[in-house]
Write a protein that binds this DNA or RNA. Sequence first.
DNA 1: TGATATAGACGACGGTCGTCGTTTTTCCGA
DNA 2: TCGGAAAAACGACGACCGTCGTCTATATCA
Lengths: 200, 200
Amino acid sequence: MMPISDCQVRDPRIRRTRKLLQGALGTLMQAKSFDEISVQDITEAATVNRATFYDHYTDKFALLEALVAGGFHELLYARQVRYDAGCPAALGAIVLAACDYLVQVHARGTCDRQTAFEPLMDAAIVAAIRRLLIEGMKRAEHANTLQPEMVATSVSWAICGGVKQWFSTPKRPPAEVFVAQLSGLILPMLEAAGIAKHPV
Amino acid sequence: MMPISDCQVRDPRIRRTRKLLQGALGTLMQAKSFDEISVQDITEAATVNRATFYDHYTDKFALLEALVAGGFHELLYARQVRYDAGCPAALGAIVLAACDYLVQVHARGTCDRQTAFEPLMDAAIVAAIRRLLIEGMKRAEHANTLQPEMVATSVSWAICGGVKQWFSTPKRPPAEVFVAQLSGLILPMLEAAGIAKHPV
DNA sequence: TGATATAGACGACGGTCGTCGTTTTTCCGA
DNA sequence: TCGGAAAAACGACGACCGTCGTCTATATCA
């Protein structure tokens, strides 16, 4: 009855309930803004008792986190996105995935002043990208003058911030154009960290 | 009676009340975690009616935002921190300020799982650094192949993320050492954007 | 298949939230 | 200094929150 990670849950009752809750939130967010949705709304839409909600998530933010993080992971997995040092296209694929996911999320769902929504999105995106980078850096043994976690964190934040800035720009260029721009800005970081081949 | 920006408020009643509220929150956070503090607690400590609170801030998060943003701006102003292209020390000063502020904030106040506290801190720090960078970039007319806002956003996020990573590291190096590391990681971004002199 | 463990349903609770309308106090300019 | 304007105090309201204890339904394993 305690909040356990979504991954590796055997009991079909648990899987069913969490799927219902996530689905209900996703559906509701197509009509309402996140902070206009109460836990009651979610549990009613999911045909789940309100008390049961708290057996799975500490609050509605935790549910949203699971939904968002799951969605982004799914996108990355579907595209088989990886980071490999020396391959500029790898960085571009990551940035493009972030762009597309932001667009996708805001396509469904309302886009008004999402008070607590954006920080959650950011955290999920940063965490996912950070994981990709660390995995990629561990595969390629490199001259690690800097801690890999540090580089990965800073780079993932740089990507997330840049993508958000792009997305919030009124007349933004096509994603492909922007991806090239931001990659040009961030590749030098990876080169400086010794985990990307210098162009020369 | 509506929530107006803190800056440029003539009426002493308003200044007084907001100072009281911010002071009360600051005091309370030395004893309790932020999300353990209710609006009631704040208004009681500030000797202000609870309904009056909502005449000034939409919720306790807005109050914290004002407190944090004000504090960081104060620190930057006290140190006269600026960004000037071609001066690596300028970048270092910004990073160091962020480090010191994070340490300062967590020195007072409890440091447990600050649910909604951290995103707020992040946003305040990112916004302040972003402003510094944009101001510095506008002073130095540079070859702007990229939009200054884009570069400033991505860089400020990279700094904020890096500093947070440093701060959350159990056995972190001294701030000065870390500042040099992160500057070395981020300066290439500014060089790539053409707003810092290339070392060669 | 049957026994045990565990998830979910259900109702109720005290507490906080955000808002409203009214009354009292304070500021500021004529 | 006085009168209007605006801020703060105050009490009350409905809604939502998070939690608890009890009872029923379902899954798991021997």
